[in-house]
Amino acid sequence: MADHGTQYYVKIWGILLVLLVISIFGPFLEIPAVTLITAFGIAFVKAYLVVKNFMHMNVQPAYVGYMLSTCLVFMLLLFAGSAPDVMKKDGDNWVKTVVVVQGPATMHHGEENSGDEHGGAELH
């Protein structure tokens, strides 16, 4: 395994902290594209840095990376196959409604609006 020296790891840690700060403050601009990039794009960069430098993925045999990324691809498949059903709220002759049943006492957030209203985003 390549001997990087402790300084190297501290440097990576510094970069990670800078990225963390960016990912916190980026979304404060309230521009959706910036939020996406700063929050999620940077998460991928951070994960890449940790996996490569701390987990030393770069010095493992290539198949280690392949097997982990295959599992990730399977998760994408799960998402792609399930999301159309789970996210679909209505069809030609059906609407997925949320019936608010009188729930337990803790359910004081119970004002889930019925799912066929697409304008749920206006809540905030």
Partner: peptide, 23 residues
């Protein structure tokens, strides 16, 4: 515990379980 991940009466999605199960 009283969550409602899969209970449509409270906004859960039973189809999601079917996907997780059959995956």
């Amino acid at each position: 515990i009283g969550t409602h991940f899969f209970d449509p009466a409270y906004g859960g999605d039973p189809i999601l379980w079917q996907h997780l199960f059959w995956f």
